[in-house]
Design a protein around this nucleic acid. Structure first.
Length: 337
DNA sequence: AACAGGATCAACCGCCCCTGT
DNA sequence: AACAGGGGCGGTTGATCCTGT
């Protein structure tokens, strides 16, 4: 094995780690915590640089790492998060429990990027290559994405800070501190996923897209290709009512989460003439079209044959953003308006 | 069986940011 | 305010594995 690079006059080893080195590193950290990475190799009896030890621990030896195949959910999460955060792998990793930024980065570069390219989607912009649109819908979603990005970054910071605290506690050989409660989720991702890119990538057929940030709209799931399917896989007919609940799984959960953005829950979905429209049944709505949200149930999705696409529309963007900002406790001081 | 090319992923490198002095 | 050191991040490399011929 090559020996190179001098660090404090000690030959440091490079290249693949041996089992013996792994055992030494794990044993030392379990007993003492990592403390200063720079000082660790000498204390642990390793001829490695501190950086190499840190990398080996964080990317491979840490006990809370999940290895192996990425699930479809994880794939989706990576793509959505990448659409919002770009190549900020560490920030993305904070939203994928037990996955390392390195692993996610590798997975993206070797698989997902290629797959998106094959689907005709630009892996950088996450837009169809033949439709680099600058539509109002895109602009609207971009606004939401900017806020979501800010939230995700703040969340990543919180996670980093809690990790730091945890490592300090570990260093003192005490139990790690309790994790801070998760920050409120704005779930703009659920709207973001409704872009053409995600529809064409995940769905077996295409659905309509938002035409304008201020228009009211309905969607028609392609009736000639696939029937509209409810949360339990049943085929929905006109005037069927699909109950919404906060504890609902998958698609229902998504829709409910989205409604919670507006602070309104406990509502129903009604199917009218191939259009599923969301309407408020329980008092919070104004009764105007401002509250209309259209939802498409898609049976052709990957893993659960449930709802994959939630398309939302809110006429009054300002009240929407006020609600959004209320959730994170921020005053309404935005250049967006 | 042997080889080539592609895919995968652990590990490294260089830069940047944060913190302490 | 300036500087130094430590740690984290993203890009890249190279060894290994896999697959097709």
């Amino acid at each position: 094995m090559e020996l190179s690079n001098r660090e404090e006059n000690v030959e440091v080893k490079k290249g693949p780690w041996t089992r013996d080195e792994d055992q030494k590193l794990v044993a030392f950290i379990e007993q003492h915590g990592h403390g200063s990475w720079r000082a660790l190799p000498a204390k642990a009896g390793l001829q490695r640089c501190g950086k190499s030890c840190r990398l080996r621990w964080t990317n491979y030896l840490r006990p809370d790492i999940k290895r192996g195949k990425f699930s479809t959910q994880e794939e989706k999460a990576i793509i959505r998060l990448h659409a919002l955060l770009g190549n900020r792998w560490s920030a993305i990793a904070t939203h994928l429990p037990k996955r390392t930024d390195n692993e996610i980065k590798n997975y993206w570069n070797t698989r997902l990027k290629k797959r998106l390219t094959r689907m005709g989607i630009d892996p950088v912009t996450h837009k169809p290559k033949n439709n680099p649109d600058g539509s109002a819908q895109s602009a609207n979603l971009n606004h939401m994405a900017q806020w979501e990005t800010a939230r995700l970054e703040a969340e990543a910071r919180l996670v980093r800070e809690s990790k730091l605290l945890a490592s300090l506690h570990l260093h003192r050989a005490t139990a790690p501190p309790p994790q801070p409660p998760p920050p409120p989720c704005l779930d703009v991702l659920k709207v973001w996923q409704a872009t053409a890119a995600f529809n064409s990538f995940f769905n077996s057929y295409s659905v309509g897209l938002l035409e304008s940030p201020t228009s009211t709209l309905n969607f028609s799931p392609n009736p000639t290709t696939v029937p509209t399917v409810g949360p339990n896989g049943e085929i929905l007919m006109a005037n069927d009512v699909v109950s919404m609940s906060n504890s609902g799984a998958c698609g229902l959960g998504k829709a409910s989460s989205y409604m919670q953005i507006k602070g309104k829950t406990g509502s129903s979905l009604h199917l009218h003439d191939n259009n599923i429209t969301y309407s408020m049944d329980h008092g919070y709505n104004t009764g105007s079209l401002n509250d209309l949200v259209s939802v498409t149930f898609n049976p052709g999705c990957y893993e659960d044959s449930m709802v994959t696409t939630i398309l939302g529309e809110i006429e009054d963007n300002k009240s929407y953003w006020n609600d959004l900002l209320n959730l994170v406790g921020s005053p309404m001081e935005s250049p967006v308006f």
